[in-house]
Amino acid sequence: MTRPPESRPARRPGRDRSISLVSTALLDDLLTNTLDPGYRSAHDRGLPRHWWDGPLAAAGALLIGLVLVLAYQQTHRSAPAREAARSDLISRIHDLQKAGGTLDDRAKLLGAQVAALRDQQLSGTDRTSLRAAELAAGSTAIKGPGMQVDFGEPSSTPSATVGERPGLSQQPFIHDVDVRAVANQLWLSGAEAVEVNGIRLTSTSAIRFAGDSVLVDFQTISSPYTVRAVGDRDKMQLAFVDSAIARRLKTMEAVDDISFSFEGRSSMSLAAAAVSQPGYALIGVAPSASRSPR
């Protein structure tokens, strides 16, 4: 390795004529003349020494030390504040989720009380027709034979957490479209009631996404996903095996190493959905009595 001479005079223009390109000369100058040219020219001019040389250098060094320690403190002072804000936000999210869960439980309890009181007032036939309507709307817990589809992200990918902050994993393989396709396929195969990760689907349910997480009726669910459907289990299984989404999940199982399985169940119970009472919709005129619009 060749090195430039130790004390090399400042490069004057016109030297190194072999280097014709200005940019190359500039880079060459940058790499070889690392010392501030001021030192060399001051030395060459032979400036006289002053009494304030020592204090001046000391003052400069003091300033530099201050700048360095200032930057260090600035970097390390703001870091704990950020961390505190982050953990505060996380704890607030958990608190609100807990409060939401408590309210949900209370709503279900009160709903059950209302249903019990209403049952006492209703006659036998009214009760039966109400039960049928509730079953169709999904507002009552049910049980029956059916099938269950389980699928989830690969349990551990070696490169998932390397060099990343905890809590940030790589892009998920399974998206809302896959969960939605499974649910729709089960409806198509004759399911009478469908539940995704314990959340019962109704006629107004939506399976969507926010960022990388899947939302079912605005509640976040995460891998592994379990879709359960009550219905004719033989018919549902036959139709599901042959469906596009089953083939897609099968392929993803082979390629991306996701988990995927489904099986028929002789009996399973599905939770009730929290069905909101319609606020604007009223019962319309029965079709037989309606007049055709002009």
Binding site: L35, D36, G38, R40, G60, L68
Partner: peptide, 26 residues
Amino acid sequence: ALDAVFGGIRARLDGIFNAKVFVVSF
């Protein structure tokens, strides 16, 4: 600041250190 520190040390070792240049360049 780091550039000034290293430049100053090198100039000192080269025997051409100058306090004025050191402070002004920084």
